[in-house]
Design a protein around this nucleic acid. Structure first.
Lengths: 206, 206
DNA sequence: GGACTTGTGATACACTTTGTATCTATGTGA
DNA sequence: TCACATAGATACAAAGTGTATCACAAGTCC
């Protein structure tokens, strides 16, 4: 592909048009059903123009979603340790960003193919955790919905396992399983021996 | 598509052939590069045979990976609350299963398109968490690698956010952010008021 | 403003892939 | 062995892909 000058206003206009058209189409018909021609038509551009800018749909999608990563990364920078105390934790930044860019995040998170299986596994782990908690007959601090706790746990567990395999299993499976269980049970404060900072148990009102 | 008798040995043979051929090809060239013809050829079948069994690649992929979910779900059933004490936690089952079916899990977890962006976000959150922990100057219990803790936290946080959006935001973002932080810090034991059971801090030797 | 450069649009083409139809052959179970 | 369900071979229309060429329009620079 010949190099285009990304500062040229025509290039910027065209690319933005393609990105926006793509997002509209994904929301309307879903990723897989879209052809290059569809994107070009929706963006009121020639099909060949698409190929001048992107190799395929995948590349355009990445271009669309990269802004999310960059924005999030930039904002998270500012969430320094001290400011966590004031409520500026990276988690909060994440949630705020999702609210702002909800459309793009929906596309990002919308399960494509493989994802559905992971999703079902996570759901299963969550349901299992939920059952265990309900059987214990205890009530959570601050009336936190058990469902949330269950998905927190399941996400951490599946996610860590994915990381582990991705890293080519740098530790024994058995060791990982024990750590995973330990971390979900005791949390960071205990693990890191932090006693000075603890947020209040969250409630939906305060 | 006309219904096929899944008990017919010819059908079973054909489907297994297609599944196995597909897995081989994915590992060799990656999902996207594979055409239906490729799969049929690799499975030594006619292309039309593919269409008799699956609507498209996606459906075949799902068929390939469903066994993972079903196996995992079946095994997790057996991990009752009492047996967690003996080490039969759902997490352990997950890790063992991954070790057994490593090839399939690799395919399942291999990032397709959208996933890479989520992956980068998760990585960023992990790095942020890592930096915070390092700045604190504390050592974790039992010498747990900080990297693992970081990815545990990041996975839980991203995962819970995905769930939240998926459920159409049943709680305010602010509330979710506070819960997410609370859970990662304090863990299940404290949240659920469980004091009677705590596994020992994991070490790589024991 | 005028000349030059660069990006876009229109058209065309070869090629691949898809999804279906039709007919024949072969394996399966009663 | 016979009826039937499934697989293979071949063909075809339709859609999509990726590239080439040329004319035109929009930006840039003096």
């Amino acid at each position: 592909m010949m190099q285009l000058n990304l500062d040229d206003p025509r290039v910027k206009r065209t690319r933005r048009g393609l990105r926006e058209a793509f997002v509209r189409l994904i929301l309307k018909t879903g990723y897989d059903a879209i052809s290059i021609q569809d994107i070009a038509t929706e963006a009121q551009a020639a099909r060949i123009t698409f190929y001048r800018h992107y190799r395929d749909k995948e590349e355009l999608l990445t271009d669309c979603l990269n802004v999310l990563y960059e924005e999030l990364a930039a904002r998270t920078e500012k969430a320094s340790p001290q400011r966590i105390l004031e409520g500026y934790s990276p988690v909060r930044v994440l949630y705020e960003h999702i609210e702002e860019e909800e459309t793009l995040y929906r596309i990002l998170f919308s399960s494509r193919g493989t994802q559905t299986v992971i999703e079902r596994m996570r759901h299963h782990l969550a349901v299992t955790a939920l059952a265990t908690m309900e059987q214990s007959g205890r009530k959570p601090q601050g009336e936190i919905p058990l469902e949330i706790i269950a998905y927190h746990v399941a996400s951490a567990q599946i996610g860590l396992a994915i990381w582990w395999l991705d890293q080519n299993k740098p530790y024994p499976a058995d060791y990982m399983a024990r750590i995973s269980l330990w971390l979900t049970l005791t949390g960071l404060s205990e693990t890191m021996g932090v006693t000075d900072f603890k947020p209040p148990p969250p409630s939906i009102t305060s």
